[in-house]
Simulated assay, not measured.
Amino acid sequence: MPEDNILTPQGWIRGHLSHQQGRVLRIDGEPCDPADNDLPYLLPGFIDLHVHGGGGKDIMQGGDAFKTIARTHLRFGTTALLATTMTAPSEEIGAILAQLGPYCEQRQPGTARILGVHLEGPFINPGKLGAQPNFAHTAIAAEIDEYLRLAPIRVITIAPEIAGHEALIRSLSARGIRMQIGHTLGSYEEGVAALAAGASSFTHLYNAMSPLHHREPGIVGAALAHARYAELIPDLLHVHPGAMRVALRSIPCLYCVTDSTAAAGMPDGEYSLGSHIVTKCLGGVRLADGTLAGSTLTMDQALRNLVKIGLPIAEASQRLSQFPADYLGLADRGRLQPGSWADCVRLDRSLKLTKVMVEGEAVDFQNA
């Protein structure tokens, strides 16, 4: 077995990783500086908490779409993800959750683990839809309880300024659901109040939220001043590298997501995004009016983009693996150490992905 530069919570190890029954058994080797050798990098598998689609399929299509999406993202090093819904009529959301619930119970061979659901909408501000279809409405506790009965919802995006939402943030966060501020016209003060009530992150920071102004700091200002966690899309289209660096300096556990659509891993053309038709071209995905509509980003490219703007490989990896795992409270994912899931990616010195392993299963990702 060849040696690797293995990234562990204690730092880089030059050596070998062994696994048994899907878990890391041990890591043998010595501390090292990867700059002193030309060995490949072995990093924790990527964890993407915002995935709408991939491989030509959209989560809201249901059926075999889940498998196609989980298989597609595994090809690019994502070993675990949250299936992310679009704003839609309640009965449509319920029907998709009823299918996702059983699917989340067991990982299929050759696919990434679907950890649960990120409910992005419908509890958002209709004045800040972004690319979300216009089915936004005020959250109702009974509706959310029904959704929770159908599927393991781990994250809910919510606009805190809407009447009744702050109380729901408080009650749902107390039940262990990560409540994220997003698609919002809220003020700085409303963002701070939501954090105090239990909100724990921000959905695609900077995008679809009230911006930072020096006299009206907005939701962006609340995040930069107070957040521990926030998600950000590092495709270099959604957020300028300078704004990315501001967020990286301000938010200790900023983690990165793809917000990927059906167009991820596919050629240019037209694809579904919920009830919308979107067009992939010039590396992005847009509605007919030019609005950015999710992305074509994959997590291996996210790693390369973070390194391109100046992050060390170890920090870039942390923001794609450990921090999202920590955010969900998963101590056995997002890091390589004895007892953790054997989820890992091997990259060559140019950061090209050469091998993926998920829960101890080595995947022929080129043919996955």
Rank of each mutant, 00 (worst) to 15 (best):
Ile59Arg: 00
Gln61Phe: 02
Gln61Asn: 07
Gly62Thr: 05
Gly62Asp: 07
Gly63Val: 05
Thr68Pro: 05
Thr68Trp: 07
Thr68Gln: 13
Thr68Met: 09
Ile69Lys: 12
Ile69His: 14
Ala70Asp: 13
Ala70Gly: 13
His73Ser: 11
His73Leu: 15
His73Phe: 14
Phe76Asn: 04
Phe76Val: 02
Gly77Arg: 10
Thr79Met: 12
Thr79Gln: 14
Ala80Lys: 02
Ala80Leu: 12
Ala83Pro: 04
Thr84Glu: 01
Thr85Met: 14
Thr85Leu: 15
Met86Cys: 13
Thr87Val: 11
Ala88Tyr: 07
Pro89Leu: 12
Ser90His: 08
Glu91Ala: 10
Glu92Val: 14
Glu92Pro: 03
Ile93Gln: 01
Leu97His: 08
Leu97Cys: 13
Ala98Ile: 11
Ala98Ser: 15
Leu100Cys: 05
Gly101Gln: 13
Pro102Asn: 10
Cys104Lys: 14
Glu105Gly: 09
Gln106Arg: 06
Gln108Gly: 03
Gln108Leu: 09
Gly110His: 12
Gly110Asp: 14
Thr111Pro: 11
Thr111Phe: 07
Ile114Met: 14
Leu115Met: 14
Leu115Thr: 07
Leu115Glu: 11
Leu115Arg: 04
Gly116Ile: 00
Val117Gly: 06
His118Asn: 09
Gly121Leu: 02
Gly121Tyr: 00
Pro122Thr: 01
Phe123Tyr: 13
Phe123Gly: 03
Asn125Pro: 07
Gly127Lys: 07
Gly127Ile: 03
Lys128Asn: 10
Lys128Gly: 06
Gly130Lys: 08
Gly130Thr: 11
Ala131Tyr: 09
Gln132Thr: 01
Pro133His: 03
Ala136Gln: 08
Ala136Tyr: 08
Ala136Asp: 11
His137Cys: 08
His137Lys: 11
His137Ser: 07
Thr138Trp: 04
Thr138Arg: 12
Ala141Cys: 02
Glu143Pro: 05
Ile144Trp: 06
Asp145Met: 03
Asp145Arg: 04
Tyr147Pro: 01
Tyr147Lys: 02
Arg149Gly: 13
Leu150Thr: 13
Pro152Glu: 12
Ile153Tyr: 04
Arg154Glu: 07
Val155Asp: 03
Val155Leu: 09
Val155Ser: 02
Ile156Ala: 06
Ile156Pro: 06
Thr157Lys: 01
Thr157Ala: 03
Ile162Arg: 10
Ala167Gln: 05
Leu168Ile: 04
Ile169Cys: 08
Ile169Thr: 05
Ile169Glu: 09
Arg170Trp: 05
Arg170Ser: 12
Leu172Thr: 08
Arg175Ser: 15
